[in-house]
Amino acid sequence: MTILFAPQDPVLAATSDGNLFPVRRVFCIGRNYAAHAREMGRDPDREPPFFFTKWAETVVSTGTTIAYPSETANFHYEAELVLAIGKGGRNIAAADALDRVYGYATGLDMTRRDLQLEAREKGRPWSTGKNVEQSSPLGLIHPASETGPFDSGSIKLTVNGVVKQDADLNELIWDVPDVVAYVSRFYRLEPGDLIYTGTPAGVGAVVAGDEVVVSIAGLSDCVVKVGAPAND
């Protein structure tokens, strides 16, 4: 048998010590900060966080100019702490979760907000709003042996130097161990999986030409520029 076309190259994320981390899957936690849940019109006391998935190919490295996506007029930033899984497992206990984390990074969950809200109102999946090309920018992955565990610390996002999101990781509803434990109840986590842990309040729109910077105390920044729409 003949392979009909070349398979897709693996998505490789850079680490702070010069290695490459092959990305397998992307899990994203939704409404994991109470203030953000409220700004999205939800009650965090009644509706717990949840998660959705994105393709690995949505991950791009810090320093990338990402194309403004099609079919939206409301493209939003969301700053996130990202977990890089190095050891897999199913039904992982929260007490054992940190042992499964290879490292941590800054990241962005870029969102076609208008399409996400339209889908939400109709009770449809969020795929067109969330699972978007170049929508998961990622900073350098810092090995857990060198940093963490990120149960507190500043998380901040700026657009063109102006602070838009400014919170503390201790505001996470589900902390890092809880997030790993919860996702592993539904899927066997594997080395190479990334978990975007949720965004604080202050999300908003960007336009072509904007520069977005995510900073988390103890990690390298994730920096992207928003470019013109792709024309291919």
Rank of each mutant, 00 (worst) to 15 (best):
E171Y: 12
V159S: 08
D178W: 00
T197S: 10
V163P: 13
N170H: 13
D193M: 01
V159L: 13
V163C: 13
V176F: 10
Y196D: 03
E190K: 05
A167S: 15
Y187M: 12
P191G: 07
Y187C: 07
V180K: 02
L194E: 02
P177A: 04
F186R: 09
R188N: 12
G192M: 01
S184H: 06
G198V: 09
Y196R: 07
G192Q: 03
V180H: 05
S184R: 05
Q165E: 09
V183K: 00
D168Y: 09
D178P: 00
W174G: 03
Q165P: 04
N170M: 07
L169F: 11
Y187P: 00
R188P: 09
D178K: 15
D193S: 02
L189Q: 06
D178E: 15
K164H: 13
K164R: 15
L189T: 07
D175E: 05
P177K: 02
D168S: 15
G198K: 01
D178L: 04
L172F: 05
G198P: 11
D175A: 02
G198R: 01
T197A: 05
Q165L: 09
V180C: 05
D175L: 00
W174H: 10
R188I: 06
L189V: 09
D175R: 11
V176T: 14
S184W: 08
L172E: 04
